[in-house]
Design a protein around this nucleic acid. Structure first.
Lengths: 342, 342
DNA sequence: AAATTTTACGCAAACGTTTGCATTTGAGGT
DNA sequence: ACCTCAAATGCAAACGTTTGCGTAAAATTT
C-alpha cells in the first residue's frame, strides 16, 4: 500500500546506522563529504521524503494550523483564507480547513480532531450556535493547552485571546453617515442574524450614527435577514409596504443589498433617487450591480494576513492578548450617489 | 509550552503499564470494568487527548487529506470545498487546504509538504502553469506512492487517475442552443483563459453547437477574458464596436457576464431584446443581476461530495481510474428569455 | 487438592527521525 | 612503539500509542 522509503531502508542499503543517513541528508559536517553526496543522490533517486509525523511527535510541533469557519462561500471568508495561506506558505505551515456550518457540535468535533492532530495553533470564527448559547469551554480546552488561538471577525466572549477584526461599528457608522449626507431622511437597516457580533456591531454603528444626527431609530425600519441574498427579498418588500417608506437602506452585507435592489427595481423604485443603498464587504460584483453598489470594504484578505502574522509573532514572543482592528473603507458608487439639488 | 498529558503520564499516576491505560481508554474487555471507569474518569478530568500523530506513524494512515486549488474565492471552488468537507467530516478526516495561485512552483511546494505530512490522499485542480508547461511529474510522485489522487474540474494530462468534473462541453452546448432557440443570429463568446480545460471545453461546446446548426464560428465574436469581472469590460466593448454586433453572448462564467451586462446597460443596449446573454456556474447572485442572469449550473457542491465519496470507495476497493461527469443544468432567467414574436 | 480455565494485567516491539554520547579508525607527533 | 587528536560513524533513547504474547493470580471445574 505505502511505497515510501525510510531512513532505515537507506541505512540497510548502505549497511550503516540510520543516524548516519539522517546526518548525511541534513548536511551534518561530521559525515564525510563524499558519503554525504552518495547518500543524498541515492535518496533523491529512490524518492525519499522525510516523514514529518515522526518529527512532530519528537519535537511537539507539527507545523500545522487549524482554521474553523462557519462557512466559506462568502467572498469575505475565502478571501481571508487566501491572505492566511499567503503568509503561512512562506513560513512552512500547512492549514487544516474546517467548516462548522454554524453548528456548535461540529465545531467541537473539529476542535477535537485538530487537538488530536496536535496543531500548533488555531484560527477561529465562532459558530453562531456556540455564540448564542455562550459555549466557550471547547475553546478554553485549546487555550489550556497553551496553544495560540486567534479569533477572526467574531469575538470571544469570556475567552481572553487574540483577535483580528474589522471595525464593523465604524464601517456601519460611515455608511449611515454617508446616507445622511446624501439627504436620506428615513434610513432603514437590513439587520443580520441576531446573536452574531457582526450583525450587532453594524446595527450599533447604524443606530448611534442616526442618534448622533438627531434621527430616531424606528423599529419598523429594521428588518432581520440572513447573510444570503434570498432572505432579503421579503424583508425589502416589507419595508416598501410601510406608510412611511424608507428613502435609504443600509444592509448588513452586499448580497442582501443586491437582492434588495432587485426588489426595488421590480417595484419601479429608482435607485438612488427614491432609495439610496449601501452594503458591506465590497465583494467584487458590487461594482457590477445595477446601479453599482456602494459598500464598506473590510479588507478581507488583510484580515487573514494579519492573523497569520499575529500567530507568527506569538510563537516567538508570547505577549499578552491583543486585538488588531482594521479600518473599513467606504466605497461610494452609484447606488448611493445622489444628485443633490439644493 | 505543551501541557498535554499522555498515556504514560496516566500510567505513572496509576502505577501500571501504559498498555493498561490504552486498553482501558479504548474499552478493551480484558480490563476490569471498574478499573476502566476510574481511568476513563481520570483521563477526562485531566483532559487527556489522544495523540493521533503516533498512530499515524504506526498505522501509516494519517486520516488527513490534501486539497490543492488554484484559488478559492470563486463560488464554485468554495462551494465544492463545502461539499468535500461535509462528507469527510462524517468519515473522520481532516482536510489540508492549499491555494496554488495558478503557480507550478507553489503547487510543487505544497505537494512536498503534504507528502511529508503523509496525507492519505490528494484532491487537486491543477495550476494553469503546470498545465501550460505540461508539468505532471510532481503528481506522478504522489501516484507512485500509491496515494489516491482525484482530479477536480481540470484534467490530468498524461496522469492516469480519477476525475470528477462537470460536463462543460455539454453545458456550453446547451447554453448556445438556448441562445439559438431564442432567435440569436450572431452569438459571441467570452472565452476563458487559454490553456485551461474549462475554457476549452466551453468553447468547443459553443463551437460545435453553432456548426451543428449551420452557423459560422466567427473569430471576431470570440473575446478572451480572465475569470474575473473586470476583464470582461474591454472585451464586451470590443464586441459592441464591431460593424456586425452580436445579438447573443455566451460567457465563460457568471462574473464576466454580470460585468458584460454592466457594459451593455451603459451602452443603452437592452437585454435580452438586443443582446441575450447566458453565463456559467449559476452563482447565487446570478438571480439578482439586472436582468436576472441565465446560467449553466455545475452543481459545485456535488462535485466536492462525489470526489469525497470516490476517495472513500477507493480506500476499500482500489479499482481502476474512473471519471465522474456531472450533468450541467441550464437555469433560464430573464437575461436570455426573449419575447418571441413570429 | 489438583487440574483447568478465566481474568487482569505487564512486556516489548514497532512506526521514523534526531541527537548526545560513545566508539572506532587512522593519522600524526614524540 | 606509544600517546594524542581528529574524523567518521554507531548506539540508544526519546516522542505516544497499540497489540500480540506471556504470566501471574484468582476462580472454576474435576
Amino acid at each position: 500500500m505505502n511505497n515510501s522509503v525510510s531512513i532505515k531502508d537507506i541505512a540497510k542499503k548502505f549497511k550503516c546506522a540510520p543516524s548516519t543517513i539522517s546526518r548525511a541528508l541534513n548536511d551534518h559536517p561530521a559525515i564525510n563529504i563524499e558519503t554525504r553526496k552518495t547518500i543524498q543522490e541515492y535518496a533523491l533517486k529512490v524518492g525519499y521524503q522525510k516523514n514529518t509525523l515522526s518529527l512532530s511527535l519528537l519535537n511537539n510541533c507539527s507545523m500545522t494550523l487549524g482554521l474553523i469557519l462557519p462557512s466559506i462561500t462568502h467572498f469575505h471568508e475565502s478571501s481571508m483564507l487566501e491572505g492566511l495561506e499567503d503568509i503561512l506558505l512562506k513560513s512552512g505551515y500547512l492549514l487544516n480547513i474546517c467548516v462548522s456550518n454554524e453548528s456548535h457540535t461540529i465545531e467541537k468535533e473539529y476542535i477535537d480532531r485538530l487537538l488530536a492532530n496536535r496543531v500548533d495553533g488555531l484560527f477561529i470564527s465562532m459558530a453562531q450556535e456556540s455564540y448564542d448559547q455562550q459555549l466557550g469551554e471547547h475553546i478554553d480546552r485549546v487555550i489550556q493547552r497553551s496553544l495560540p488561538v486567534i479569533f477572526i471577525d467574531r469575538p470571544n466572549h469570556g475567552v481572553a485571546s487574540d483577535r483580528v477584526v474589522t471595525d464593523d461599528y465604524q464601517g456601519a457608522y460611515m455608511a449611515t453617515k454617508h446616507l445622511i449626507d446624501m439627504g436620506c431622511l428615513r434610513i432603514a437597516h437590513l439587520h443580520g442574524p441576531s446573536g452574531i457580533s457582526v450583525s450587532k456591531q453594524r446595527f450599533l454603528g447604524y443606530q448611534d450614527c442616526l442618534l448622533a444626527h438627531g434621527r430616531k431609530v424606528e423599529e419598523k425600519w429594521i428588518q432581520y435577514v440572513h447573510f444570503s441574498a434570498e432572505s432579503a427579498i421579503a424583508a425589502t418588500r416589507n419595508l416598501m409596504q410601510l406608510d412611511q417608506k424608507p428613502d435609504g437602506i443600509f444592509g448588513v452585507n452586499d448580497e442582501v443589498c443586491l437582492a434588495a435592489m432587485h426588489v426595488l427595481r421590480d417595484l419601479g423604485i429608482s435607485i438612488p433617487q427614491d432609495v439610496a443603498i449601501v452594503g458591506f464587504d465590497d465583494i467584487p460584483l458590487a461594482s457590477f450591480g445595477y446601479p453599482p453598489l456602494s459598500s464598506v470594504s473590510r479588507q478581507s484578505r488583510r484580515i487573514g494576513e494579519e492573523a497569520a502574522k499575529l500567530f507568527l509573532s506569538k510563537k516567538t514572543h508570547n505577549k499578552s492578548p491583543i486585538t488588531i482592528s482594521l479600518d473599513p473603507k467606504l466605497m461610494i458608487r452609484d447606488s448611493s450617489l445622489r444628485v443633490m439639488m439644493n
